[in-house]
Design a protein around this nucleic acid. Structure first.
Lengths: 115, 115
DNA sequence: CCGTATCCTCTCCGATACTG
DNA sequence: CAGTATCGGAGAGGATACGG
């Protein structure tokens, strides 16, 4: 039996390969609160272009962390949600939310001391 | 008082800006086990070039998550370690290690079933 | 040993135009 | 609405040579 450090592939490298990317993490942040339409994601994620959003969603779908559902309507409607695998990544994003929240509060305090 | 969701800057975006990057996360993985020399990092992180390693270390130093110590010796010696702020990111990497380890084990099992 | 400087390549990404 | 297709500029990153 291999110990954690002796695994053939580094766990961090594996995780990084899936979500070690700015946009992927921001998309996941949106999907953690539930299913979203393409346009909702586009609006919520400031600075992303339609093209890059599509590219990232396709990659996430390939990797099995996002589910895509197309509705045969006019106008068209496409919904994205986290798969079970995608949802299993929730603790990672949560730890980022926790850390980022603390970090921001520290910086707000520091700025107030400056003024 | 603002609630978590009303903070002026998204916590995830803040965190992503600091460590939402392949190489940064892999460098942090190495430094979590203690101080490392430049050449040790270069050897440990497969696929990174000297230039990119330097660039990332400089950015991490600027962001305050890495400390750089130069020894006035011949041959020169430079040691990198996590700052207190950098070490506070440990829970995030830990959650990635936990998830990645599980993911790899699932895939190893799946491969064994295939054969 | 630990870099920086330069060149050159290659990919990313924005802008735009066009479809079901 | 939710894409795809195409073009072109900007920047990331490799290879190499050189410096403290």
């Amino acid at each position: 039996m291999l110990t954690k450090d002796e695994l053939p592939f580094c766990p961090v490298a594996t995780t990084v390969d899936l979500i070690g990317n700015k946009w992927t993490l921001l998309i996941m942040r949106e999907l953690l609160t539930g299913t979203k339409r393409f346009s909702e994601l586009h609006k919520a994620i400031v600075g992303i272009s339609q093209k890059v959003l599509t590219q990232n969603l396709r990659k996430m779908e390939e990797d099995g962390i996002v589910t895509r559902e197309v509705f045969a309507e006019v106008p068209p409607k496409v919904e994205y949600s986290l798969s079970e695998l995608g949802d299993s990544l929730r603790p990672i994003i949560d730890s980022m939310i926790t850390w980022g929240t603390d970090y921001i509060q520290q910086h707000l305090q520091a700025e107030q001391q400056d003024s």
